[in-house]
């Protein structure tokens, strides 16, 4: 920013403040998905039989696989923070790279999963879908909306983690100033947290 010197000359970077900001941002994200969860809850109580049937169409194997992938990636992010705190930059970067690779695997799985649905002509607006019973139609609408929005968050998380890697390399993030990696980590855990709830709702409750 042009007038950076207008900002209060910060004697020290407000570590607690930036983390609090990140937590509050996470709350807004939770409520964003929370709106969709509300819709899911309402329609599920109204059309439980249809939801039951439709949920059997989703691929539990890919869903479970993706759950495992995301859980492992959550651990690697958490470990990379430990690495930074104990001044091991190389390991932190390697762990973040593993996380990004895992995120990629998640996205590739998602691609095949969605691709399969499209082959079966189960996409929003398709004739097959429109002729299904109301509840199943709603289930697939929610399925695409929720997993789609989640996938978008995975992408954003990947970008954030990439930025973090570059900031570690350039020396801006180190054992004395690790707000960025911690906040990107919090964001990545949020992505995981949402998936933890999406997974049973879309794949298991049959």
């Amino acid at each position: 920013m042009a007038e950076i010197k207008n900002i209060a000359p910060s004697e020290h970077h407000d570590y607690q403040g930036s983390k609090m900001g990140m937590w509050i941002f996470i709350f807004t994200e939770l409520f964003l998905f929370g709106g969709l969860f509300l819709v899911y809850a309402v329609f599920r109580t109204q059309y439980s039989a249809d939801f039951h049937k439709a949920a059997e169409e989703t691929n539990t194997f890919i869903g479970t696989l993706n759950t495992i992938v995301l859980l492992i990636s959550s651990m690697t992010v958490a470990m990379s923070i430990t690495a930074i705190q104990s001044n091991n930059k190389g390991r932190a970067i390697r762990l973040l790279l593993v996380t990004i690779v895992l995120a990629l695997i998640f996205m590739v799985n998602k691609y095949f999963e969605w691709g399969h649905k499209f082959e079966l002509r189960l996409y929003p607006g398709s004739v097959v879908l429109t002729n299904l019973p109301k509840g199943e139609l709603l289930f697939f609408g929610l399925y695409f909306m929720m997993t789609g929005l989640h996938a978008l968050h995975v992408l954003v998380g990947m970008i954030l983690l990439t930025v973090t890697i570059f900031r570690i390399k350039s020396g801006h993030v180190h054992s004395g100033n690790f707000s960025l990696i911690e906040n990107s980590g919090l964001y990545w855990h949020l992505v995981d947290l949402i998936w933890i709830f999406l997974f049973p709702m879309m794949y298991l409750i049959t």
């Binding site: 807004t28 994200e29 409520f31 964003l32 998905f33 929370g34 709106g35 969709l36 819709v39 309402v42 329609f43 109204q46 059309y47 929003p124 607006g125 429109t130 109301k134 509840g135 139609l137 709603l138 609408g141 929610l142 695409f144 909306m145 929005l149």
Partner: peptide, 28 residues
């Protein structure tokens, strides 16, 4: 955020024909 997602759902309803709220598509 709740209205944010709600407006997104209406957009999805118009663009992708996902019926969250339109009774013709099962919505409420």
């Amino acid at each position: 955020p709740i209205v944010g997602i709600t407006l997104l759902m209406v957009i999805a309803e118009r663009v992708l024909h996902i019926g969250f709220f339109d009774p013709a598509l099962g919505g409420d």
